[in-house]
Computed example of a mutant assay.
Amino acid sequence: MAAASEGAKFTVIPLRVSPGSTVCRQLFVKQHRVRDPDPQRPQDRTLFVLNLPPYINQECVHRLFSQCGTVTSVELQEKPGPSTKSKAQKSKFFSRPLAQGFQVAYVVFKSSAAVKHAVSLKAQEPWVLTTAQHLLRTGVQKWAEDYCSSITDPRELQDHIDQFMEQHDQDQAELQAMAEAEEGVPDEDGWVKVTRRGRHPGIPRTEAANLRLVQREKQKRAQRELLNFYSWQHREAKREHIAQLRRKFEEDKQKIALMRAQRKFKPY
């Protein structure tokens, strides 16, 4: 079966969902090689896997490829690309969306010999995804399990929020204590940090914060000057308009008086 994809340098591994399944799928594997190496995916110890079903999970991939050697990590993705391990999950209540199609995997082995063993597999019996010892839910059972796991327990979520807010308040208290301890103590350059006083004291202002504050004040002053300029311009325009109306009124009065003086009685 390995000869079926020699052009793409992939090795084909047959796969069945269960021992009694008549449908046989195919996994395509090859050694992971890219121009920009990723330290999380050593090229001599990483296997790139294509055509993984949507219902497969990391534990199942780990178990299957452990037949080739010791597996240190498995990373599933919807499409090939950079590693997503660096993106830390903010909360377990807002996990990534479920895969809608076939997936790819990056399997990292403990030794490079395991990768060579995987890409050199010849025609063999299909690998089995689910057995009595390792049950993998598929079909309606998988959809029902995903739906039940998507429902959040309100009490568990509230406990998570309370822990987060408690940690946040503790961090803020530590920052405030550090600011109060450093207040009035000059640093190496002789500068003294000054905090705001009043009902809501804050943390010491840094040089960058002071520059932002100065820039904000300049912008406010410029806006006030611009508004004052426009107000003066409107007042001058109104005054000029009133003066023009008065001049026109006086001219009309003179014209009317002249017409009355020139008017004569002509009965015929």
Rank of each mutant, 00 (worst) to 15 (best):
D36Y: 09
A8V: 09
N57C: 11
V71H: 03
Y106N: 04
T22R: 15
S112E: 14
Q43C: 09
C68Y: 05
L121V: 13
Q124P: 00
V34K: 07
V12A: 10
I13K: 02
P19V: 12
L135H: 12
T84F: 08
A4S: 13
L50H: 10
S86D: 08
V34R: 11
L98K: 10
T130S: 15
F109E: 00
L47P: 02
V107H: 03
L64I: 15
T72F: 05
V74T: 10
R96D: 13
A105C: 09
R16E: 00
T72G: 01
Q77L: 12
G101A: 13
G81Y: 08
A113M: 08
V74H: 05
C60E: 10
L135G: 00
P53F: 08
R96H: 13
C68R: 01
D38N: 14
P80G: 04
I56D: 01
V104M: 07
C68N: 08
G7K: 11
P54S: 14
K9F: 07
P39F: 07
P82K: 12
F10Y: 14
F109K: 01
S95V: 11
T46H: 01
I13V: 13
L47H: 04
F65R: 02
G69H: 02
V119N: 03
L76G: 05
A88R: 14
A99Y: 15
K79I: 03
L121S: 09
L64C: 05
K90A: 15
L52A: 06
